[in-house]
Write a protein that binds this DNA or RNA. Structure first.
Lengths: 252, 252
DNA sequence: TTTCCTACTTATCGCCATATAAATAACGCA
DNA sequence: TGCGTTATTTATATGGCGATAAGTAGGAAA
């Protein structure tokens, strides 16, 4: 039986570029960056050479996928949220992680994040350094305040304290890994789980934290103070040279 | 300048097979399974067709890599360790996780585990189901006992309890991800970190756990009882048909 | 020392993936 | 309604990678 061919439709260059970019995200996060341009084109309902009208080569397309996924993932309100002293610290922290989990626990993000890490991109470390500077420092600061411990200005944040916050981050992110990388079942009510993880964190942390703050503690190694340099926010990637569309070739 | 060629050395078939297998692990865990057989052969100091004398195709070689890495990773003493009632529960649990972390936080394991997950292998889920049945259930059982809560025989283990143990597992495993996938710096003294994570876990968990055990709790959803079927232990993968070496071809 | 088995190499096939060049046709505009 | 621009397709080049076939030589045994 003959394949019914959809009537050819011309999109504006911008529309098509976005169309391809979105499709590429969905495609590559599923099969990895080894996925073939032919297969991608087929899914998009276009021919493979058309991709090369919009992106000079596959690598540029992948670059575009990174921008699509990494950009605008950061919600600047998170920082305000953690700073809002009108609410109790515990409530703020729990609320933040509930929000953050919603933003981060998606098929696309989890997989692209892993793929880019395994490929040796440094996007991951850039992104996570940002998280550390914008979030971890705040969480620790508020925890210190909550438990009557010295402020980071008085005693700089120690390695071990960061590790404790890393652990909470990890336990949330790992829910996504279990589901979208290992293909395991996870609880239906992720919100409740995250809430419990944050709560359990808040209950378990102070003992260890207080211990690590005692000058006698074995490995109290202050880190470079974070939160010092104030960057423009939001963008993990540079605003970035937009890939120039290929000029139509002269004919004849 | 002429390339100094190492004198050709003949290994016994078994030796060469292991040589290739070990090299393949190191190679594929670094570049992923998309890595080229030519490049692998170069690193091994052999020619690429020789690979095909020992493995019928690339997929079989990859299969061999899985066996090499997954097999014998499980230490049966872990279960005994957790069951040893002559030591306090907290001590046992902390000691177990210190040990487990040492076994699991390696470049090879972390990366192969991720690569196999992203490839859609079900090895990950098989392995992790084993961990759940052999470890998580024990940890929860001991915790319940420690805190005077009903035993799993009386009240089956709930979803949320498993989630709490997952969280500890995640926070340890994630240390490896940070280092070997994201390329981030991690503390020198991982042992101490793991100890603190386990401690913080033990301090933080009981409140949430007790809550989740109250019949009134929202989502007390008992899971299928684990630890029931006793499997031969140790092997995650089937003992597995050894790839038959290719018979030398008749000549002339 | 000679022989013979087989580990290993050289040479090469054939396919498939990225990428380019040339031809076609959809749509805006006159 | 016809024209020109350019989005899109068809056809194809080019190289790389998995895999095979045939020839070479190491070393154990006699």
């Amino acid at each position: 039986m003959a394949v019914k061919r959809a009537p050819r439709r011309r999109l504006s260059a911008d529309e098509r570029e976005r169309h391809i970019a979105r499709g590429a995200v969905a495609f590559f996060c599923e099969v990895g960056f080894g996925g073939q341009t032919r297969e991608l084109a087929k899914r998009l309902g276009i021919t493979q050479p058309l991709l090369y009208r919009y992106f000079p080569n596959k690598e540029a397309l992948i670059e575009r996928v990174y921008r699509e996924v990494y950009l605008n993932r950061w919600d600047p309100r998170w920082e305000e949220m953690l700073d809002d002293h009108s609410r109790p610290a515990r409530e703020r922290i729990v609320a933040f992680y509930r929000d953050y989990a919603k933003a981060v626990l998606s098929y696309e993000w989890i997989r692209i994040f892993m793929f880019s890490g395994l490929r040796g991109m440094n996007l991951n470390s850039r992104y996570l350094t940002l998280v550390r500077d914008r979030v971890y420092t705040r969480v620790i600061r508020e925890l210190r305040r909550e438990y009557g411990l010295p402020s980071p200005a008085e005693v700089p944040i120690g390695e071990m304290e960061f590790e404790l916050v890393w652990a909470l981050h990890a336990s949330i992110f790992y829910i996504g890994i279990r589901k979208w990388i290992y293909g395991l079942e996870i609880p239906e009510n992720v919100d409740e789980v995250v809430e419990n993880l944050a709560t359990s964190f808040l209950d378990g942390v102070p003992a260890v934290m207080a211990k690590s703050l005692k000058p006698a503690a074995k490995s109290l190694k202050p880190l470079k103070p974070a939160l010092k340099t104030r960057k423009p926010a939001t963008n993990v990637l540079k605003p970035a040279a937009k890939v120039p569309r290929r000029a139509p070739r002269p004919r004849g």
